[in-house]
């Protein structure tokens, strides 16, 4: 079993930074640690660099206020100084909110709370929200999920066990969905809810959906840190 990293950063990724990919972020943080003069445990290859790992990579274009980066502080930098020093050298939109010692392994992350904003340019059609919720109010909803690994080019996935809760609220010309979804093994990308709804609910055809990761939860649906 891999040893747990000692320390964690809780960070937000919003605004223009939503378009920084996971791989690019994995390059950005080690450089930022160096710029901040914070000593971090290094990898042991030929090209040594800070050994960092980001739990549950976020899809490109999504925003989040609960990203977790694991690393190990090796110098004598006090943990409380880390956020300010990092924030001084990070790109716009990436903000370190907290730095702390890890208590439980990230594999105990069980669920994520998402806020997804479905924009209807011509106004929300009457009944669209009801249709959306009704679609998922069932015992099983098996969809075909595109997969590069599977021979058929897709795998079958039942969405229902991966959905812990859904609630919708109408805000102006948008429907705002708050969803608690399985985080890993397997996780459910909220985009799948919308692509499925688009196929099966005639009224639910939003022009654009924004995805925002709001909280990381454990199996008891308590905040995970």
């Amino acid at each position: 079993m891999a040893k747990m990293h000692k320390h964690r950063l809780l960070f937000a990724k919003t605004g223009r930074a939503c378009y920084i990919s996971h791989l690019d972020l994995m390059r950005t943080f080690p450089r930022a640690f160096l710029r901040a003069g914070i000593d971090v445990k290094q990898t042991e290859g030929f090209n040594q660099h800070s050994f960092v790992s980001i739990a549950l990579p976020l899809s490109l274009g999504y925003s989040s206020v609960c990203e977790i980066l694991e690393f190990e502080l090796v110098g004598d930098t006090p943990l409380c100084e880390v956020p300010a020093r990092m924030n001084a050298v990070l790109p716009e939109g990436i903000r370190v909110l907290d730095c702390y010692e890890a208590q439980v392994p990230v594999k105990q992350i069980a669920a994520l709370r998402w806020v997804c904003r479905a924009q209807f340019d011509g106004g929300v059609p009457a009944g669209a929200g009801e249709q959306f919720l009704a679609l998922f109010d069932t015992d099983a909803l098996v969809i075909q999920k595109p997969s590069k690994k599977a021979k058929k080019g897709f795998t079958e996935l039942d969405l229902i066990p991966l959905i812990h809760s859904l609630s919708l609220e109408e805000r102006g010309s948008a429907l705002e969905l708050t969803a608690v979804l399985a985080a890993q093994n397997p996780g459910l990308n909220p985009e799948l809810l919308f692509s499925t709804a688009r196929e099966r609910c005639p009224l639910f055809r939003p022009d654009f959906v924004e995805f925002h990761r709001e909280e990381v939860l454990n199996a008891n649906f308590e905040v995970f840190r």
Partner: peptide, 13 residues
């Protein structure tokens, strides 16, 4: 493709 090309917002912009 590669939307980060078009956003700006890099460190020290």
């Amino acid at each position: 493709q590669k939307p980060a090309r078009y956003t700006g917002g890099e460190y020290r912009e």
